[in-house]
Simulated scan of single mutants.
Amino acid sequence: MALITEGSIKNFTIEANTESHLKNDASRKLRSFFELEELSADNKNLNYELSVSEEKRGLALKSFKLNKSFEDFISTIFNPSNEIYFIAWSYDLSGQPVHYYPGEGINPQDVVINVKKGKLTEFIGDGINLFPKRQVKGGIAVRLFIWESDQKSRDLGETLVNISNAISESELNNVLSLVSLATGVTGVTINLIEKAALELTKVIGTILKMDKNDYVDLFEGYYAADTEWKKGLDSYTRESSEITLNKY
């Protein structure tokens, strides 16, 4: 379960498909997945178009801080710094495959960063790219896993390969492709997306747990396509960590 959350996939936005709604004025006013799911049984099969953002949007991890409360005082004495790595995946409903950080063919040594508790770690430029800048359809969904690396664990490189394979072969990728080919979205479509996204999260979580590393936090965020994209930094703080995202 995510400890840090922003929005919900229910907030992804839709627009009335003129051909489907000529005789149903009330249905024209629906704007979100949540409202679409609340339709009466008689209207469940009405199709809607996905909203598209006016501008191109990107999302990045700009900074990270491991709070001093992450481990007790004794462990801090013997281990003043921690090796942290991030696993992230994101998507919209344009039909593009799931975007994955750190991606394929990455040297595991380039993924792990040494972090001192209580000290802010900032990333150059826009930050670590979580969602590549482009016009967004429906909305942006992103999940960011934060883990502490154990030097005694099995090869992190193998873990990264397994995660990459899990994403590329996931049902979520199949569903996203199907949505892009469909003439519109319905309540059934939403359920398929949610189910596939949850299953992928479970699969990736299982792979990471097998590596016997320590879980730190999970961020889960959703940004609807038709809402204002306020460029800049957003920070989220929990007991174990603090992250700052850059909306650019």
Rank of each mutant, 00 (worst) to 15 (best):
A2S: 14
E6V: 05
S8M: 10
I9M: 15
I9E: 14
K10W: 01
A16R: 02
S20F: 05
D25A: 11
S27F: 05
F34M: 14
E38H: 10
S40P: 13
N43A: 12
K44N: 10
N45T: 11
N45W: 04
L46P: 00
N47G: 07
Y48P: 01
E49C: 03
S51H: 04
V52L: 10
V52E: 11
E54L: 13
E54Y: 04
E55F: 13
E55T: 15
G58D: 03
L59T: 02
L59N: 02
F64S: 01
K65R: 14
N67H: 13
K68H: 11
F73R: 12
F73H: 13
I74D: 07
I77M: 15
P80L: 11
S81M: 12
N82W: 00
E83P: 03
I84K: 00
W89L: 03
S90C: 02
S90M: 04
Y91K: 10
D92Y: 01
S94M: 10
P97R: 09
P97C: 03
H99Q: 12
G103L: 08
E104D: 11
E104T: 08
G105H: 11
D110M: 08
V111Q: 08
V111M: 08
K116M: 12
K117A: 09
G118T: 09
T121V: 11
T121S: 07
I128H: 00
R134K: 04
I140P: 00
A141F: 05
A141C: 03
V142Q: 00
L144V: 15
I146P: 00
E148S: 08
E148P: 01
Q151K: 12
D155V: 02
D155N: 15
L160H: 07
N162A: 13
I163T: 10
S164Y: 09
E169V: 06
N173E: 10
N173A: 09
L178R: 14
L178W: 08
G184S: 07
V185C: 04
G187K: 03
T189Y: 08
I190S: 01
L192F: 04
K195Y: 09
L198W: 07
T201L: 05
K209V: 03
M210F: 06
M210T: 07
D211L: 06
K212W: 09
K212R: 08
N213Q: 07
D214G: 01
Y215E: 10
D217L: 01
L218W: 02
F219W: 04
F219V: 03
Y223Q: 06
A224D: 15
T227F: 09
T227A: 15
E228L: 15
W229K: 02
K230I: 15
D234G: 05
S241C: 13
T244A: 02
N246T: 00
N246E: 01
